[in-house]
């Protein structure tokens, strides 16, 4: 996993609430047996017409917006446990998703793939949407060490919560499985005691 410490980037705004994992990556793209190429189908049904041509009104097809931070409406990532959603977001090039609320499983899946979910207040979120709407060059800065997110257009900053263990994993580019494998003998003892 790649290390994550700090990031300043333009944002892609998606001011829709309850964006579910079926929208992030529709089920028909789940037939793969590896993790590659999901980024091409991120938000496929919103992004492409039936004939595969891009839908002009969808934000990913609007050249004014870009960068590696996705800013989405409340309750992002609800629905299925498919990690393919996190692979699609990561594969497309997003390193951070900012929202006022995330679904549980999605949040875990994102973190396990080095994508940082950043929870901000509803006001902060609304301001980002409003500012980006008039000026797409607005940037956000995420500092994982300080756990701060700053809107560089108006200078407003908030701290965000992250589990200390997960933070350490991201900062050092480690994943959970390394940790669990180091606990093998403890697991065997637990089984015996059961």
């Amino acid at each position: 996993m790649e290390k994550f410490i700090t990031l300043t980037s333009k944002v892609v705004p998606l001011p829709i609430e309850n964006v579910d994992t079926d929208q992030i990556i529709p089920a028909r793209f789940l037939k793969a047996t590896n993790k590659d190429g999901f980024g091409d189908n991120l938000f496929a049904d919103w992004r492409y017409n039936k004939d595969g041509s891009p839908k002009a009104d969808f934000v990913l097809n609007n050249p004014s917006f870009g960068g590696s931070i996705l800013v989405a409406g409340k309750n992002f990532g609800s629905g299925s446990s498919r990690e393919h959603a996190a692979w699609a977001i990561d594969g497309y090039g997003f390193k951070v998703v900012v929202s006022s609320f995330f679904a549980d499983i999605f949040q875990n899946n994102a973190l396990n793939n080095g994508v940082l979910p950043v929870v901000v207040s509803a006001e902060f979120l609304a301001e980002v949407f409003a500012l980006v709407n008039t000026d797409p060059s607005v940037t956000l800065t995420i500092n994982l060490l300080d756990q701060t997110v700053t809107n560089n257009a108006n200078g407003k900053s908030e701290t965000f919560a992250i589990n200390a263990y997960k933070k350490e994993c991201l900062v050092n580019g480690l994943d959970d499985i390394d940790y669990l494998l180091s606990k093998k003998s403890q697991i065997e003892e637990f089984e015996k005691a059961k």
């Binding site: 446990s81 990690e83 499983i105 875990n108 899946n109 396990n112 793939n113 959970d176 499985i177 093998k184």
Partner: peptide, 12 residues
């Protein structure tokens, strides 16, 4: 759980 976690459970 997600697929990373599937891997964790298979392994540990």
């Amino acid at each position: 759980i997600g697929t990373s976690e599937v891997e964790m459970v298979l392994a540990t």
